[in-house]
Lab assay of single mutants.
Amino acid sequence: GLPEGWEMRFTVDGIPYFVDHNRRTTTYIDPRTG
């Protein structure tokens, strides 16, 4: 799974992105792969 505090969501286009609730940021880069 994802690191603690992270969540995976999808855009309206079906593109996955990642929400970091710890820092309240979003990124398209998987936190597991950097």
Rank of each mutant, 00 (worst) to 15 (best):
N22Q: 12
T33L: 14
V19Y: 15
F18Y: 10
T11Y: 02
R24Y: 10
L2I: 06
G1E: 15
R9L: 10
E7Y: 09
I29M: 09
P31F: 02
N22H: 11
T25F: 15
D20V: 05
F18R: 00
N22T: 11
P31E: 02
M8H: 01
D13F: 12
T26V: 15
R23L: 11
R9P: 00
T26W: 15
Y17F: 11
I15N: 07
R9W: 07
G1P: 15
G34F: 15
P16N: 03
P3R: 05
D30Q: 00
M8E: 03
P16M: 11
F18E: 00
P3H: 03
D20P: 04
M8W: 03
G14M: 07
V12L: 13
G34W: 15
G1Q: 14
V12K: 15
R24K: 15
V19S: 03
D20H: 10
T27N: 04
T26M: 15
P3D: 06
R32I: 04
T26E: 13
D30F: 01
P16L: 09
T11E: 04
T26A: 10
G5Q: 07
G5Y: 05
G1W: 11
Y28I: 07
R9I: 05
D20M: 05
T27R: 03
T11F: 02
I15F: 08
G34Y: 13
E7H: 08
T33H: 10
Y17D: 02
I15P: 02
V19F: 14
G5D: 02
P16W: 06
I29K: 10
P3F: 04
F18V: 01
R32D: 03
T26P: 02
P31C: 15
D20Q: 07
P3K: 04
G1S: 14
V19G: 01
P16E: 05
G5R: 06
T27I: 08
M8A: 06
R23I: 06
E4D: 13
G34E: 12
G34H: 13
E4P: 14
W6A: 01
E7G: 06
T25K: 14
E7R: 05
R32P: 04
I29P: 02
F18G: 00
W6I: 05
D20E: 06
P31G: 01
N22D: 09
R23E: 13
V19R: 05
D30W: 02
T25D: 06
G34A: 14
T33R: 07
F18D: 01
I15G: 02
D30L: 01
M8Q: 08
E7F: 08
G14P: 00
M8R: 08
D20F: 09
N22G: 09
V12N: 12
R24M: 14
T11L: 03
V12D: 12
D30T: 01
G1L: 14
